[in-house]
Each structure stands twice: as C-alpha cells, then as structure tokens.
C-alpha cells in the first residue's frame, strides 16, 4: 500500500523524537539509525509501541559493521554484528590469529548471520570440542532492554542465557555487537592422502585422528574406482609436527593405502549441513565429492554439491522459540514502554 509522503514525514518526526536517534526515509519506510547498543534497544522499544505503524519503521544496524583491532593478550576481537567474517578473519591473520577453520559458506557470512543462524558461531577447538566463538554478546532484547554477556573465558553465573540468542535467528533479541574468541594460528598445516575401501573406513580414520589429539581441520573425500580417495588436512605446531605426522600416517596405513590421489575437493559447494557421526559414512558413500569441516566430537559440517541425507541445512530457519516464552518477553517490553 502506498504511503502518503506527509504521513511518512509525520511518522519520522514522531519516532525521531521518541527514540532520540537519527532517521532517514526512503522506499516508504522510516529508518532509525542507532549508533550504540543502547540506542538500538531504545529504537526497538519505540518501534514496539507503534502498533500498525511498526511495519513502516525499520531499525537499521548499518552502523554496526566495525572491526576493531584484536586484543593481543586475550586473542579476542570486538566486532559489530554486521561485520563480514572474511574481513574479520583477514584482520586476525595480521596478528597470527584465526577464528578457527570455518566451512566455505560460513566465511562469507556476517557475524550476525554466523552467530544467529544454525552455525550458532560454533567452532571446533583442540580436544575436538564444539565451542562458541562468541566470548561476549551485546543484544538489544525484544523486551527493549540491553543484555551484555560477561567477557570471561567461562562462568557459572546461572543458565547460559546466551543460548537464547546463538542459533536463534534473533527471536529473543537483536544481536548488535560481539567480542569473538580467536585462536593462535598453528605454525603448520599438512595434508595427507590415502585410498580406502569403504566409507566406514573414512569415518574410523577421522575418529582415530581426532582421538589421537591431532587437529583435523578439513577433509575431502570422493569416490575413486571401487574405493574412496581421502585428503585430510591437519594443523599442528613445529614442536609436535613429527609426532602428528607419524600418527596420521600410521592411521592411514591401518585403514587404507597412503598415496597421492589427485584432486579430491569438488569445487564450490551448493549445500552445507550439520551431520551426526552416525550418518557420516552414509553421506560419504552416497554423496559425490564431500568436504568435511568443523570436525568435533558432537558433529561435523559437510559441504557438497547437493543436499546430504540426514544433514540439517545450515541455511535453514532456526528452531522456533515457544510462543509463550516470546510472549513473556513482549509483555515485559510493554511494561518497559
């Protein structure tokens, strides 16, 4: 429905005064342009009070794409939620740091999409645990308040409330900024190749590598003749590289035939999904070239040209939070208003 220009001007005037932030109009909507987390919360609260007019008001987060210099002591980096992960990673590389070994599609996401989408900002860390890369979140709550999680390595201060935002698609609030954990970039990456008979051998091989305290960061498989070609890339440090190499080579010999197998990776993947270990052999056997990333004891991320059976697509909508819970947050928002 077309909106009369003078109506929009009046609406702009109204929301600018109420929210106390700059505004602009265009395409039939009023954009609120907050510059801080507090302003985002206020702008959202104002939008929440507008009733039907709320459809004509957008809270823009265009100001939140900054990338600060990393903290070299704590290996952390403060970023706006709109920052691009590839650019964050490039900044970290200048400090010999990394976000971790992300899947190809994840590298092109914004911080917000990475944290709020099904990736949930998870990365595999030494010991093959999954861990959130978000040390701290700054969120404008759906209720209009602010929520900043403490910037500490770990805490035991009540439930992990951040799990209401990570991987939740912004249902409980809007992620505005984050402090991300980085990892010291290991000194070496080395790729090993082998030919194995069965998909199950690939899984056992990968589990064996992970259980040996070696860090597998990327694996590619594809069918070759009657078996499967495998390329495993591991990250390591100079002081332990010889040990890690011997271990991986030993495992390769035990499960297959270590040898050059040509190009294993299959180009840019169309599909990325999260897959449990119990379904990985099936995926290797039935999919074409398969990339395996974010290798953790809980699950892996698979990348392929087509959807992989049993994998939860990482660009699919997040699980919905229950309506009563969201209703309580909205109710609190009305109290605030």
């Amino acid at each position: 429905m077309a909106v009369a220009a003078h109506d929009l001007t009046q609406l702009e005037e109204r929301v600018r005064k109420a929210a106390g932030v700059p505004t602009r109009t265009g395409d039939g909507v009023v954009e609120l342009l907050p510059g801080s987390l507090r302003e985002v919360a206020r702008a959202q609260a104002v939008k929440g009070m507008l009733g039907q007019d709320a459809e004509r008001v957008v809270v823009s987060l265009v100001a939140f794409d900054r990338i600060e210099a990393p903290d070299p002591a704590a290996c952390t980096i403060r970023v706006g939620a709109g920052a691009n992960l590839g650019e964050v990673e490039a900044t970290l590389q200048g400090w010999a740091l990394t976000l971790g070994w992300l899947s190809p599609k994840a590298r092109s996401l914004t911080v917000r999409d990475w944290l709020e989408g099904r990736h949930a900002g998870l990365r595999a860390v030494p010991g093959n645990r999954l861990e959130s890369a978000a040390l701290s979140l700054g969120v404008a709550l759906r209720s209009g308040g602010l929520f900043v999680t403490p910037a500490a390595p770990r805490s035991s201060g009540g439930p992990m409330l951040e799990t209401l935002f990570l991987g939740r698609g912004g249902q409980a609030g809007t992620l505005v900024e984050a402090q991300l954990r980085a990892l010291p970039r290991p000194e070496l990456e080395e790729t090993f190749h082998a030919l194995v008979e069965r998909p199950e051998d690939v899984v056992l091989l990968l589990r064996g590598v992970a259980a040996s305290d070696v860090r597998p960061v990327e694996v590619h498989t594809r069918r070759k003749g009657r078996g499967f070609a495998v390329a495993i890339t591991v990250a390591t440090y100079a002081f332990r590289a010889r040990r890690d190499r011997a271990l991986v080579e030993g495992l390769l010999k035990g499960r297959g035939e270590p040898r050059a197998v040509g190009q294993v990776g299959g180009g840019a993947p169309e599909f990325e999904g999260e897959l449990g270990w119990d379904r990985l052999a099936g995926a290797i056997g039935s999919a074409g070239p398969l990339g395996i990333y974010r290798i953790a004891r809980e699950s892996v991320v698979v990348a392929a040209r087509a959807p992989v059976k049993g994998a939860v697509a990482l660009d699919s909508p997040p699980e919905p939070l229950p309506a009563p819970l969201l209703g309580i947050l909205d109710g609190a928002g009305q109290e605030v208003a």
Binding site: S143, G145, G157, L329, A332
Partner: peptide
C-alpha cells in the same frame, strides 16, 4: 551482572 537480562530468566 545480568541486568535487563533477568527478563530472560523470568521467561
């Protein structure tokens, strides 16, 4: 420490 986030706990 939780501040406004107490509403999440209440929810």
């Amino acid at each position: 420490q939780v501040g406004d986030g107490l509403v999440l706990m209440r929810a």
